[in-house]
């Protein structure tokens, strides 16, 4: 930033970046570019409420569903508006799996290449609702309450017990979950928007639904959306340069050709006049937002000592998968909640 010819536009991707660089960024509140946004879900503010940086694209994750299979099983997507609906459909499909020729959920492997879908993504529902209760997190909390662990358990149990693979066989992985969904062997697949290209090759109508987990008012839940791609404008350059930069940003997100090129690269842009995405899951996310549903932001990104934290959770979930006893779930809770505090303390030790 102290180079002789500093960039006018730069990326501040997370709260740590805001802490480090906020003095170098102008307040974007009420600028032309801010008015182009269709949501403020991806904006980063500092503690004084200054709009330091704004998102220019995002990704989302949730439960990918195959509506055709669900109809084949005699259900409709409309039945799935909350956890009870999801549970009824999934359990019915699983019970009739042999007759239908497909099962509810694809395999939820616990090896390193897959476990993040449960220790990272799925865990987000617990963090998000805690965060929402706390009025939003601006930095990693030193501990969790674990208030929504039951909800995490609801959805997790549903996924592992209504799946192609027995829960006891998940530890070392080796099941190709993506392929199971693509070939129509499973109706649900827990993953993110980056899977759209691969999945839509064969499942044209694939759609993404939120993590319904039995929380009050979850009928208004949206997808888990987030980004680390946020623009900030350098406050140390002339006002004319700042204005030119903002004009350039507005052009990028509103000009049909420019925004089309950007969307092709990035997936989707959270701006009113940007062209529509070709990624069906991101469009699903945008549609939930447009319908007034709340975005579940990526509170998962705060996980302290992320590798250690998740490794412990994997081990606890393995034990639980093998034997779904209360004692084993208590261990999952310990790894999930107490593990957070322990890892927070370790990561922030002097």
């Amino acid at each position: 930033m102290d180079k002789s010819n500093p960039p006018t536009l730069f990326v501040i991707g997370n709260q740590q970046g805001v802490k480090d660089w906020k003095d170098y960024a102008i307040d974007l509140t009420d600028t032309a570019i801010a008015k182009e946004l269709n949501t403020d879900a991806y904006n980063l503010y500092d503690e004084s409420g200054k709009l330091v940086s704004i998102g220019y694209c995002y990704e989302c994750y949730g439960i990918i569903a195959n509506p055709d299979l669900i109809e084949q099983a005699g259900h409709t997507m409309d039945e799935i508006k909350n956890f009870d609906g999801l549970k009824a459909v999934a359990e019915d499909i699983h019970a009739r799996a042999a007759e239908l020729g497909f099962d509810a959920f694809s395999s939820s492997d616990m090896d390193d290449s897959s476990s993040w879908r449960f220790t990272g993504h799925l865990a987000n529902l617990e963090y998000f609702y805690e965060e929402r209760d706390a009025g939003g997190w601006t930095e990693c909390p030193s501990s969790l309450t674990g208030k929504y662990m039951e909800n995490y358990k609801n959805l997790y149990d549903l996924i592992i017990n209504n799946s192609l693979t027995a829960p006891t066989d998940l530890a070392t992985g080796g099941h190709d979950a993506e392929n199971e969904f693509k070939t129509g062997a499973a109706a649900f697949f827990v993953n993110g928007s980056w899977e759209y290209a691969a999945v839509s090759e064969t499942v044209k109508n694939a759609t993404m639904i939120p993590y319904y987990c039995g929380v009050e008012g979850e009928e208004k839940a949206g997808l888990n959306c987030g980004t680390e791609n946020c623009w900030a404008v350098n406050s140390k350059v002339s006002e004319a340069d700042q204005q030119a930069t903002i004009d350039f940003m507005v052009w990028l997100v509103s000009d049909p050709d420019a925004s089309a090129a950007m969307v092709e690269q990035l997936g989707i842009m959270p701006y009113k006049n940007a062209v529509e995405s070709t990624n069906g899951f991101l469009n699903d996310a945008a549609k939930y937002t447009a319908d007034g549903c709340y975005v579940m932001d990526w509170a998962t990104n705060y996980q302290p000592n992320v590798d250690e934290y998740r490794a412990a959770l994997v081990s606890a979930l393995n034990a639980y998968n093998a034997d779904q006893s209360d004692a084993n779930w208590d261990l999952v809770k310990t790894a999930f909640v107490d593990g957070w505090a322990t890892q927070y303390a370790a990561a922030n030790a002097a």
Partner: peptide
């Protein structure tokens, strides 16, 4: 790194 790469491992 094959084991840890994101996405499913093709055994």
């Amino acid at each position: 790194y094959l084991k840890g790469s994101y996405g499913t491992v093709d055994l």
